[in-house]
């Protein structure tokens, strides 16, 4: 029987995501300066710091409530396009989170990623967050289907995200501010795919040791 994923695990995930984004803030902003409007790192760092504070203040224990708090805080505080996109991810994941084991978490992540695709009207290969998150969900589902424990499956998901992130470098952007650059967006790593990889790495770290 797989371990349940508790609200505290999800809080730890968001705290680790916030820590990684804070650490990588300038890298994210530099990537965004090359093909966007140079605010991805600062916007996301501000939003995630607010989300961590909101979780500390409200201390929700129900897993879906944790994700809902994160969603509304990001929506309110991020400001740029990553606010509604990450906000929709956590909102849809919250709504889809069933009984909390690994399979439920995977289903919630998939629902969140589908929410991002619907919100951004983006497809794989458009040089967006989806190019990291799609491969991450695929790797997670595949590992769980093979009977791997949750922590191993989440490590596979993080590696899938990193491969997807690296694959955005030669892509031509078709969504967001970067799409204004057309062919000139090729040769740059997508900042959204980069932060999305941190999201999956944070999940792997926060849930290490879980079966």
């Amino acid at each position: 029987m797989a371990d349940a994923v508790h609200g505290a695990d999800l809080t730890a995930w968001v705290q680790e995501f916030a820590r990684l984004v804070h650490e990588q803030r300038d890298v994210l902003t530099e990537l965004d300066a090359a093909i966007g409007d140079a605010d991805h790192g600062t916007n996301l760092d501000r939003g995630l710091a607010a989300a961590v504070s909101a979780l500390a203040a409200e201390s929700p224990t129900d897993p879906a409530a944790v994700l809902k708090t994160v969603a509304t805080t990001l929506i309110r505080t991020v400001g740029g396009a990553s606010g509604p996109l990450y906000g929709t991810f956590f909102l849809r994941a919250s709504g889809a989170l069933g009984e909390g084991d690994g399979a439920a978490l995977a289903a919630a992540l998939r629902a969140g990623v589908e929410g991002i695709a619907a919100r951004g009207k983006a497809e794989p290969g458009d040089k967006t967050m989806l190019d990291a998150l799609g491969p991450a969900c695929d790797a997670l589902d595949e590992a769980l289907a093979d009977g791997r424990p949750l922590d191993v499956a989440l490590r596979a998901a993080a590696e899938g995200a990193a491969r997807g992130r690296d694959a955005t470098v030669p892509m031509v952007a078709r969504k967001g501010r970067a799409s204004y650059l057309g062919e000139r967006s090729a040769g740059h790593q997508d900042p959204g795919a980069t932060s999305a990889t941190l999201l999956m790495e944070a999940a792997s770290t926060a849930l290490a040791g879980r079966s």
Partner: peptide, 9 residues
């Protein structure tokens, strides 16, 4: 009060 949008607002 800076440039940006807020879906809750």
């Amino acid at each position: 009060g800076g440039l940006g949008t807020d879906a809750t607002a």
